[in-house]
Amino acid sequence: MRESRLFRIVYYLLQNGKATAPELAQKFEVSIRTIYRDIDSISSVGIPIYATQGKGGGISILNDYTLDKSLFSEQEQEQMLTALQGMIVTTEKNSNELLTKLSGLFQIKSTNWIEVDFSDWAHRTPQQDTFNIIKEAIFQKRTISFCYFSGKGNKEKRNVRPIRLVFKSKSWYLYSFCLLRNDYRFFKLTRIKELEMLSETFTQDLTPTKIEKQIQVENTVAVKLKFDRQAAFRVYDEFTDNITEDSQGNLYVQVDLPYNEVLYSYVMSFSDSVEVIEPQSIREQMKKRLQKMQEKYRT
């Protein structure tokens, strides 16, 4: 806690140029004596901080000083900048400005060795408006209302208490307490429509440990798939491990998939390049679905 305050004092002075001891004491909610002890500690690690008496005086840091490696190791600096760079896509526009400021403080010239982009090659952008409304609702502890399209094709009106935004398996999800189901649920952001932040607030404050106990593990089933060799690029993109190949170049994968509609829509996304080998029950279900699709094109 004290180390965090020392860094915040340094950053505050770098931003504002100068501050009085009473001003810093009020801002960081400590005594003036504690502020002077903090200044001694900051000075002892080589940061040129000093105090001047009289009118116009105060505590300040030399104008040409940068943080460099005084408070963070090189690895910690890189981790901080990389994490911030990954967050830019989901935060406000001034994140880029903050990234530039931090790289300047750390005297790091290049921060563009990595780029995080959640949009696909068709240039569809993330659900930014939805994301921002939910984010604000989480901060303000306000109930939100929306229409949701379930995996079964149903459209339902939901009022929920938002808890956190989760990025998993290439998609954003909202984890919240659903007032309709009176239970905790995940909602995929792309299926949320007509989103509205309500005036109703809530005081519920769940800790991560309490949240984890409420998450229901999705049922999965082990599926063995056979792929034609022309689908190799996608197979290696999406499975990476446990891929075997026969003498004809066909690829085989054993994978756990959600035991619901997601399984069938995912397998069908490979078109005629895939065949379900096991289990037999899934194979039979695929046959029925394909026959039903054929019926639609016979007339």
Rank of each mutant, 00 (worst) to 15 (best):
G104T: 09
D40L: 12
T207H: 12
R289C: 06
K152H: 03
I61Y: 00
L62F: 02
L225S: 02
S281C: 08
I134D: 09
I138P: 06
N16Y: 00
N260R: 02
D40M: 09
I32P: 04
Y65G: 00
K168R: 14
D228C: 06
N250K: 10
S199I: 11
L263K: 09
Q254V: 07
F106H: 05
G153I: 05
V235A: 01
R161F: 03
I61W: 00
A122W: 03
P208V: 09
E156G: 07
T240C: 07
R124C: 08
E3S: 10
R158P: 06
L206G: 01
L179G: 07
S265I: 05
L99D: 05
F106S: 03
F131W: 11
N132T: 06
S269M: 02
M80I: 15
I211Q: 15
N250M: 03
I277T: 08
N94T: 07
S43E: 15
Y12K: 09
R8W: 05
I215D: 03
Y50N: 05
K27I: 00
E194C: 12
F7H: 06
M1V: 07
F177L: 13
I211H: 10
E23I: 01
K155I: 14
K18P: 01
K155S: 14
C147E: 11
F202M: 10
D183M: 06
K210E: 15
G57L: 10
S247V: 05
Q291H: 13
T143S: 09
L99C: 03
P162V: 05
P126N: 03
I59N: 00
R8M: 06
R161D: 13
F7P: 01
E156Q: 09
D272E: 13
S269L: 01
P22S: 06
Q53A: 14
K69V: 04
V45G: 12
L251E: 00
E78T: 08
E278W: 01
T111Q: 04
R234F: 12
D272C: 04
E238Q: 09
G249M: 06
I9S: 03
Y65V: 00
I49R: 01
E194Y: 14
R164P: 01
Y12F: 12
E245L: 05
T90Q: 08
R37M: 11
F239W: 04
L24H: 00
R283A: 15
D237W: 02
Q128F: 04
V160T: 14
C147F: 05
G54W: 12
I138L: 08
P279K: 07
S44A: 15
I59H: 00
F28V: 01
A83L: 11
I49C: 12
E74V: 02
T220C: 08
E76N: 01
V221Y: 02
L257D: 05
Y297G: 02
K288Y: 07
E212T: 07
Q204Y: 13
W113R: 13
E284T: 04
V235G: 03
E92H: 08
R298V: 14
N182C: 10
V255H: 08
A232M: 13
S265R: 13
S169F: 08
Y12M: 02
D237H: 10
D183F: 03
M268N: 13
A21S: 14
V160G: 03
K141L: 10
F106E: 08
V30W: 02
M197K: 15
G153R: 08
F167P: 02
C147Q: 11
Q140K: 13
S95A: 14
F146M: 08
V45C: 10
V221C: 08
I134N: 11
I163K: 10
L174A: 12
V10M: 04
D237S: 14
N132R: 09
E245C: 07
